[in-house]
Amino acid sequence: MGSVIGDLLPLAVGVAVSPIPIIAAILMLLSKRAGSTSIGFALGWVLGIVVATVIFVLLSSSLQKSDDEPSVVVSWIKLALGVLLLVFGAIQWRGRGGEHATPKWMQAIDDMTAAKGFGLGFALAAINPKNLMMCIAAGISIGSATLPTGQVVVAIAIFAVIAASTVCVPVIGYLVAADRLRTPLAQLKVWLQSNNTTVMSVLILVIGVVLIGKGIGGL
């Protein structure tokens, strides 16, 4: 169990520091429907992480060999995910200093309803390629470890809590002390837009190398 949690921590942090959902959550908290939209977004974000992870826990469990050794297929999947993350990280690193246009869906956040916020949160967690690859890697790490059902549930919960924390904590904090958090949230949004691409690209590169190492080690 301990080794699995150790594998999950960098992946969870990789999802947690993803700038797009954090910026989207902050924009919702500064919008005219701050409460309902941000709660819907946070719920969708958590559910998307859990669903994507659980799917690949089940898939990787079915690929596991009966002798409890990591299957070759699982190792190749980890290797492929590591290579893809290296590619994504390199692309992000090369584009870290450029100007980036604001996506149209971000411009429409001020008029979003709770239902649309939920759908957006789910999509960013379960469909966005970078976050999805982290969830796939987490699911494979859990599913290939042949843990008892209770420990599998705990591992998924730990991953989801850490991965979703950077979206959920600001939402909960805003509901408790909205007036005091408006200015810090606006400042955080500006900082993320300026710096998080660099941080994220380095983290993705590191996680990619780790996954490649684990994939090669299981072949």
Rank of each mutant, 00 (worst) to 15 (best):
T197N: 02
K130Q: 08
M112Q: 10
K130N: 06
I158Y: 01
M133T: 10
L175E: 04
P184C: 11
A160I: 05
V176P: 05
K189A: 14
G143T: 00
A160F: 00
G150W: 08
G97C: 09
G150R: 02
E99S: 12
V199M: 11
G173K: 04
T183A: 12
G173S: 05
I172P: 01
G119S: 11
K116Y: 10
L192A: 11
T113I: 10
S165Q: 04
T197S: 07
G143E: 08
T197Y: 06
G97W: 13
W105F: 15
A177V: 14
A164N: 01
P148E: 14
A115S: 10
G95I: 13
T166H: 00
P170S: 10
I109P: 04
M133Q: 05
P184E: 05
P184A: 12
A155Q: 03
G173W: 09
M200W: 04
T149H: 09
P103Q: 08
H100N: 01
C135E: 07
L124C: 03
S144W: 04
L181R: 00
G119T: 03
R180D: 01
G117T: 10
Q151N: 13
S144F: 04
R94Q: 09
P103D: 05
N196V: 13
N131G: 08
A115E: 04
A138E: 03
T198A: 12
K130A: 06
S194M: 12
I172T: 08
I142W: 07
V153K: 03
Y174G: 03
